[in-house]
Structures are given as C-alpha cells and as structure tokens.
Amino acid sequence: MSGWLDVHAHYVTTRYRGECVAAGHVRPDGMPGLPGWSVDAALDVMSRTGVRAAVLSVSSPGVHFGDDALGANAAARALAAHVNDFGAQLVSDRPATFGFAAALPLTDVDGALAELARAGDDLGADAVALLTNYHGRYLTDQAFAPVLEELDARAAVVLLHPTSPPDWQATAFGRPRPMVEFLFDTTRCVLDLILTGTLTRHPSIRWIVPHAGAVLPVVAHRVAAISAATGPMVDVPGALATLYYDVAGLPLPVALDALVKVVSSDHLLYGSDFPFTPAPAVAALAHALDGDPAARTADFTLAPGSAGASLFPRLTRG
C-alpha cells in the first residue's frame, strides 16, 4: 500500500462541530455524532495504511444549514471561509502530506462564486467539494448553473459527497442515511447530471464519485435502455466511464467488481473516509484492497500516469 493517495478523507474543526450542533445537526444524517479528528490522528491512520498524501474535505451536512430568512447565507459564507482557511493552513504546514477541497456555501450562489474564487486564487485549493443536493436542490438546478460554469472554466476537480436526500424521513425508515440513502442520492445526482446533458455541457470538470460509484454500475444499462422511451438513448455507461471513482466505504466483496465492469481501473482512486470510518476499519479495508485482484489493477499512488497524479499534480512534487 506504500505511497497511496487518499482522496476521500475529512476534517472536523472545533468551530465546525459547534456550528453543526447549534444548527440542530447533533446527530448528522442520523449518525451518533460527528467523529473526533486531529492532525495527529489523521497522520497516524495514514501511516498505518501506507497513505502518502490525503486530500481533505468537509463532509455532510456541509456549511449551509438553512433558510436565508434566518441569516443562513451570511453564516454559511463565514463558515465556508473558516473551514477553507483551516484546510489551507493544513496544506501550508504539510504541503507534501495534505491537499484540501474547498467547501462552498450553496445555496447562496453569489457567496459560492466568491468563495470559489478566493479558495482557488488565494488559498490554492486542490479541489472543490460538492454535496449531491442542497436542501433538496440538486446540482442541475438552474440557479447553480453559474457555479458549474465557473468550475468548468477552472477545469476543477470536484469531490462529490452524498448527503441526506429530500424527504428522507419517508425513505430512511429511521435508519442512518449513510446506510442506504447516501448511495441512492449519489446515484440520483450523477444520473441527473448525465440525463440532463449537464455533464456534457461542462466537459472540463473532473468529477470524483464516491463509494465505488454507489449504485451506478448496477443501474447504468437499465437507465440507458429506458431513456430511449422519451428520446434518443443516452449512453449512460459511456458517460460513467469518463468520471473518476473513489473506493471509500465497503467496495468489497461486490461493489468494486461491479464498478470495473463499467469503468477502467485507471479511473479508480483510494478513499479512506476517515474519521467517519474509524481507524481500525480503515486499516482493515485498506489491507483487503491491497490483496484484491480488481483493486490491484488500479494505481492508487501519485506515480506518473496514475489518476492521482493527473488530478492532483501539486502533490506529486511532495
């Protein structure tokens, strides 16, 4: 596992935790709570799994917590600035070890554009982290078009991350949303990007889809076939093959095999999901990947020609 790049790793600041709790996210997405995180803990799990560098991001529920009538836009702008400044400082302290993906305060489009420019131009963000939906509005929402256009103009790397879907109360049956709902929301978001032509209109964005593609490999051919009922058939498998995928979560024993039937191994990246996946589980899953035939066809390092080197060239110089 020596020299791997981790593209699905999170950080949790004290202020971020406090603002999540104040906004009612004591048990975010139905989980027991936000996990503890520190630089030392991150470095320890990286050492135990042979990870050379990690691109850090803020997970669900993101930084925008509610209705702007209650001042949520201003609060979201401030919180996004805080977590991005924190991420940039981590990179400044350890430039060969950490990268960071900037959080944006959607649904505040003006705030998101301003923070995207600041994070990219002033902070040197390596990527941008986007949630699959923002208060029930998916990334194809016309209001978000200026943000996607700017991401395309910047040829940005976008780390996609699931969050609770709209009306989750009716679908999760009281269970934590990461159990099932996260996978379906990732699938819903990516299929919507494909079927609306949004992916085609923004060809320079480099998307990284989490959790071994969620349910996408299983439904891709079915969606393509049924798309013909309302118009020309959409080549969903072909579109999926252009995206990148991390293998965070539980890609074994089934999900990774399904993914590599649709996507070439040079589009696979390692992901730990630390600290939301506890350190012992991260180590066990990494060792299992290291011995898996399908995973071994992928290059999870920053070596020349790897997906990691293509997407995160700054880290190759570490």
Results as ranks from 00 to 15, higher is better:
Gly36Arg: 09
Val12Pro: 02
Ala143Val: 14
Cys189Val: 03
Val21Leu: 10
Gly249Val: 11
Ser38Asp: 00
Ser59Trp: 03
Asp152Ala: 00
Thr316Cys: 04
Pro35Asn: 03
Pro293Lys: 07
Phe100Arg: 05
Arg188Thr: 10
Val51Glu: 01
Ala102Ser: 08
Phe65Tyr: 14
Phe184Met: 14
Gly213Cys: 08
Phe184Thr: 12
Met1Leu: 14
Ala127Ser: 10
Val12His: 09
Phe144Arg: 09
Pro203Gly: 02
Ser204Asp: 15
Ala75His: 01
Ala281Leu: 15
Leu269Ser: 10
Arg317Cys: 03
Val247Met: 02
Ala283Asp: 05
Pro251Gly: 01
Trp37Ile: 01
Ala279Met: 07
Thr13Cys: 03
Tyr245Met: 00
Tyr134Met: 10
Ala212Cys: 12
Val128Arg: 08
Ser47Trp: 07
Ser164Gly: 06
Val109Trp: 00
His161Gln: 04
Ala125Trp: 03
Asp6Trp: 08
Ala81Glu: 15
Pro146Glu: 05
Gly24Ala: 10
Gly111Tyr: 09
Pro293Asp: 09
Phe274Glu: 11
Leu56Ile: 09
Arg17Met: 03
Val254Met: 14
Ser57Asp: 03
Ser310Pro: 08
Pro165Leu: 07
Val158Asn: 01
Asp246His: 00
Leu116Lys: 13
Leu250Val: 15
Leu243Cys: 02
Ala54Trp: 11
Leu250Glu: 15
Ala81Arg: 15
Ala295Asp: 02
Leu130His: 08
Thr200Gln: 15
Arg154Gln: 06
Gly30Trp: 04
Ala96Val: 02
Gly197Tyr: 00
Arg188His: 04
Leu289Tyr: 06
Leu90Ile: 04
Met179Asp: 13
Thr297Phe: 01
Pro95His: 12
Asp121Met: 01
Val26Ile: 12
Ala78Phe: 00
Ala155Leu: 04
Thr297Tyr: 10
Arg118Met: 07
Ala294Cys: 11
Ala303His: 12
Val247Thr: 12
Ala114Asp: 07
Asp122Gln: 13
Thr187Ala: 08
Arg48Gly: 06
Asp235Pro: 08
Val263Asp: 04
Cys189Asp: 05
Val7Trp: 04
Met31His: 01
Gly318His: 11
Phe312Cys: 06
Gly30Asp: 13
Arg314Val: 07
Ala41Gly: 14
Leu216Tyr: 01
Pro203Asp: 09
Ser92Cys: 00
Ala214His: 02
Leu240Gln: 09
Val219Ser: 04
Arg314Leu: 12
Ala96Leu: 04
Glu19Gln: 14
Asp6His: 04
Ala220Asp: 08
Tyr11Gly: 07
Ala170Asp: 13
Arg15Met: 11
Thr107Trp: 14
Val7Arg: 04
Ala42Gln: 15
Pro293His: 03
Leu123His: 11
His267Arg: 03
Ala286Leu: 06
Leu56Thr: 01
Pro293Cys: 09
Val190Leu: 02
Met46Cys: 11
Asp67Leu: 13
Leu104Glu: 03
Ala75Cys: 03
Ala255Tyr: 08
Thr186Ala: 03
Met46Ser: 05
Leu131Gly: 10
Ala309Thr: 07
Val55Trp: 07
Leu302Cys: 12
Ile194Pro: 05
Met1Lys: 13
Phe274Met: 00
Asp29Tyr: 05
Ala170Asn: 15
Gly249Arg: 05
Ala224Met: 05
Arg206Trp: 09
Leu116Ala: 08
Ala286Glu: 02
